[in-house]
């Protein structure tokens, strides 16, 4: 595993840990939408739509 791969793995491990933190549906949805902007450089806005049926 290269150092780039190592740092990517560490980065996403931290992201995953952050996303697991709330442990409640509504708060997790909010966090997912907000953190997407930090993770994906091109992303300026993010929304999550839930399937309801």
């Amino acid at each position: 595993m290269s150092s780039d791969q190592h740092s990517s793995a560490a980065f996403f491990a931290a992201v995953s840990k952050d996303l697991m933190q709330p442990g409640e549906a509504g708060l997790t949805f909010d966090l997912v939408a907000k953190e997407a902007i930090e993770v994906v450089p091109a992303c300026d806005h993010c929304a999550f739509s839930l399937r309801t049926r």
């Binding site: 996403f12 992201v15 995953s16 996303l19 997912v32 939408a33 953190e35 997407a36 993770v39 994906v40 450089p41 091109a42 992303c43 300026d44 806005h45 993010c46 929304a47 999550f48 739509s49 839930l50 399937r51």
Partner: peptide
């Protein structure tokens, strides 16, 4: 569960790397 929708203000903003990052992020999300 649903869909995660990432918007950019400008056209052609998403590179191949952005798409890869988004797919990994979506999996964790």
């Amino acid at each position: 569960l649903g869909a995660l929708n990432m918007y950019a203000d400008r056209a052609n903003a998403f590179t191949a790397d952005d798409v890869d990052l988004a797919l990994i992020y979506a999996s964790h999300a």
